[in-house]
Design a protein around this nucleic acid. Structure first.
Lengths: 334, 334
DNA sequence: GCTCGACTCTAGAACGTTCTAGTTGCATCC
DNA sequence: GGATGCAACTAGAACGTTCTAGAGTCGAGC
């Protein structure tokens, strides 16, 4: 009735071009078995009829799907960056991505269920929150790659950043600038990476022979957590602070500046994550960045390997982060 | 060979339960036509075999797809917020969402092509960048709802915010606080909403009889644009500024504070978009927020109406924004 | 005892592709 | 001049569902 009565199919193109359906199929997916002349003619007809292949039917018939399901959280701007990398990586090896988001009102289980019904070949989960056991049962059904979360399950693959190394880099940088009294505001008990980053901090301090100066304050993932933590720190202020993440660092910065302390003049601050806002001139935060492209490439490669049934012994890939030096770190006060 | 040889199908469940495939289908989609007893039994078998319906086959067979394709940009954190609303709205009326992102290296055309192949029933485009003509040809093929962009094409639906009204609200707020010398830093020539917001500003100034004080400075969408514009403003500083967007406002704030001007003591600033970073204690920006839930609900409803072939005369829905008052606006300096 | 309707269930076609196993035509080889 | 090979093409099954049409069963109504 309205615009297009029905979308054209292979059969329509075949009829119009005077060839068989199978031949049109061959032409459309650029498979061998058609002469240049007919190829040309079929393509012309397809274009004229505005033919669009039906992915559903295509995937249904041809078993393997060359489709990777990705679960990401709308709350994490960082996940958007990772999507960019994943699209690139998948594209490069001829795979497609199908996305499913978690939102404050749409949980991970729902997001995963949707992808399972779409019959993607493997799942890539960005910072999955569901219990490890659940990941394991899921992995029994379909290859699963978890990113940015360590999972001690021998059936799920993991691609993550070397968290400890990240804070290590931050401490190295500060020490190099001449800092000694460096404190760490951690991510609290509930955050997965918190313990690793704290350990990285302690280890780095020991490595520089500064264990006597080491000081860890309990914080959390939010802005307020950083603000609260730094107030406790100010009785005997260090010359530099490494924070659990950028948000926490921002809260911290805010309190410092309100108290009239100059950053980095009086105190240097390092965040973690290289969140987009840390680039704002206003904040200009020195921070630790994950290697997005490398991680994305590895995750996709690993997923595809599993789909192809490759036998890979090690399940976990740990990628080194890098330090992004901006304006919140400098020489310590004299 | 590996984990699961093959995912179970309706036929497997049917065989195991000793009934026909059709009956299992009936049970799985909770259609009428099966007794409570068999329903129970079939479900039990399905659960035992870990049966998952195959969406592809399902959609292929049952023509209509109850599937909405959404194109969003990873660069826009705001789009993530909108996704949240869209998921809610779609969920409420039994529709599914399939997402396709644009990234710095994946353009809108590619994103749309993917969705077309997935045979979704309609397309929802967040802030589409492609030419209106292209949108029109697309709309000839499938219902299209464009969000956050005005399109003068009688074949595509539009759900957008009343941009002029947003700046109007900002000016009203400032005038109410006692400001008169209120300037506007616009979004430059290339931004779609720029002209509307500028008009809204001028109209509001006129409405308050302040046309003599009206002053528009050419800016842009970025932080640097705001910074550059405000420097030009400082020869004869106003007591308040409305900026094209939050990013521009942030650049502006940064310059002001570096110049030793207090915000809002010496000068008040209003942004636009309610970006997530505008909530940071550090920035705490008064801004104009779009009504995400309303817009999402309207967009989904409109898309579904078109799918159902409803005849709706007006193609454009304009939603009122609201002002979010935070810490960058206050009484003018005495 | 026959028909009717309601209910439960089933066979088989259909959706739009890809894949397998051909068939045809034509040039090549001994 | 008959076998062989190859390129170009085709018929029809298959993928896992849903849908249409109809078959069987049973109790009620006359």
């Amino acid at each position: 009735m309205s615009a297009g009565d029905r979308r054209p199919t292979l059969a329509d193109v075949a009829a119009e071009a005077g060839v068989s359906v199978a031949l049109v199929s061959i032409v459309m997916r650029e498979a061998p078995g058609a002469s240049a002349a007919t190829r040309e003619r079929v393509l012309e007809v397809a274009r004229r009829l505005d033919y669009q292949p039906d992915n559903r039917a295509r995937l249904l018939r041809s078993g393997r799907s060359r489709l990777l399901g990705v679960v990401f959280a709308v709350e994490h701007p960082f996940h958007d960056d990772m999507l960019t990398g994943l699209y690139d990586a998948a594209d490069k090896i001829g795979y497609d991505l199908t996305l499913s988001a978690t939102t404050p009102r749409r949980n991970e289980r729902t997001a995963i269920a949707g992808l399972l019904q779409d019959r993607c070949a493997a799942l890539v989960l960005l910072g999955p929150q569901i219990p490890a056991a659940e990941l394991a049962t899921l992995a029994a059904r379909i290859p699963v790659v978890a990113m940015m979360r360590g999972v001690r399950q021998r059936t799920v693959d993991v691609v993550r950043t070397d968290e400890a190394r990240g804070v290590h880099l931050a401490v190295d940088h500060l020490v190099e600038l001449g800092h000694r009294r460096i404190a760490h505001v951690d991510g609290g008990r509930r955050m997965l990476a918190s313990a690793e980053r704290r350990e990285g901090y302690l280890e780095a301090m020991r490595g520089h022979g500064l264990q006597a100066y080491a000081r860890v304050v309990v914080g959390g993932p939010g802005e307020e957590d950083g603000a609260r933590a730094v107030r406790r720190l100010l009785d005997e202020p260090p010359t530099a602070v490494t924070a659990f993440n950028d948000l926490s660092a921002t809260g911290l910065l805010d309190v410092l500046r309100r108290d009239g302390l100059a950053v980095p003049g009086d105190i240097s601050v390092v965040g973690y994550d290289d969140s987009s806002f840390s680039r704002l001139a206003h904040i200009d935060l020195t921070t630790v960045a994950q290697d997005i492209d490398t991680m994305a490439t590895l995750a996709v490669a690993r997923a595809v390997d599993r789909v192809d049934g490759a036998a890979i012994a090690h399940r976990e890939v740990v990628v080194a982060p890098r330090l992004v030096v901006r304006g919140t770190t400098g020489l310590p006060a004299a």
